[in-house]
């Protein structure tokens, strides 16, 4: 699964709406509950355990990609 697909499924939006500039203040679907669903899906899909600071900092698709790279996940 691509990062874009994972975001789309977790936030309940079309995959073509997911791009690096998508931030968590920009669409109503990205609320606290969706954020935690996103984190859970991300950990399951990529086999990582994210630091809480990274969960807080994950404020855009680009930032998610950057954080996952720290865990050796290229997506």
């Amino acid at each position: 699964m691509t990062l874009e697909q994972l975001f789309a499924e977790s936030l309940g939006v079309a995959v073509d709406l997911v791009h690096d500039d998508l931030t968590y203040q920009s669409i109503p679907q990205w609320d606290s509950t969706a954020h935690m669903l996103l984190i859970a899906r991300m950990e399951d899909e990529f086999g990582v355990m994210l630091d809480t600071d990274d969960i807080i900092d994950m404020s855009s698709v680009a930032k998610a990609r950057q954080i996952l790279a720290k865990y050796d996940v290229q997506c």
């Binding site: 203040q25 990205w30 606290s32 984190i39 807080i56």
Partner: peptide
């Protein structure tokens, strides 16, 4: 603060 809303901090 905006950067603490919509993530794990509210929980």
């Amino acid at each position: 603060p905006d950067h603490y809303r919509n993530n794990i901090l509210p929980f």
